[in-house]
Simulated assay, not measured.
Amino acid sequence: MDTVDQANAKARLNELADRAVASGPIDITRLRSLTATMQFRPQGAADLVRMMRDSERY
């Protein structure tokens, strides 16, 4: 598996997508480990955005 930084990934998105489709399943272990450490937010996305907006407004 190759590692590609964000700048190169943006420039080569079509190529990388074609390679991903041709290679079959993608290993998402790193994504799983990242999301496993995230805190659960009981409120919905709209409420979260509203809270952030209102706290910056005043």
Rank of each mutant, 00 (worst) to 15 (best):
G24A: 00
R19S: 12
D18T: 15
F40Y: 15
I28M: 09
E15T: 10
I26S: 07
L13W: 09
S33H: 08
R41V: 13
L48F: 06
R53H: 10
P25H: 10
T29I: 00
T37M: 07
S33L: 08
L48I: 12
D18W: 04
R53S: 12
L34M: 06
Y58A: 08
A7S: 10
Q43E: 15
G24K: 01
A36S: 14
S55Q: 10
A11R: 14
S33N: 13
N14A: 14
I28W: 06
S23A: 11
V21M: 06
M52R: 07
S33Q: 14
R50Q: 12
D18P: 00
Q6G: 12
Q39H: 14
G24Q: 01
Q6R: 15
N14W: 02
A46R: 13
D18Q: 15
R12D: 12
G44E: 05
R30D: 13
M52T: 05
A36N: 13
T35I: 06
Q43W: 12
I26E: 02
N14D: 13
R50W: 05
Q39Y: 04
L13P: 00
T29A: 13
Q39I: 04
M51A: 09
D27H: 02
V49C: 08
E56Q: 13
D2G: 05
T35M: 05
G44M: 03
N14I: 07
L13C: 04
A45N: 08
A17G: 02
M52W: 03
T3M: 06
V4R: 01
I26C: 05
T3Q: 11
R19F: 01
R41G: 02
G24P: 00
A11Q: 15
E56F: 05
N8T: 14
L31D: 10
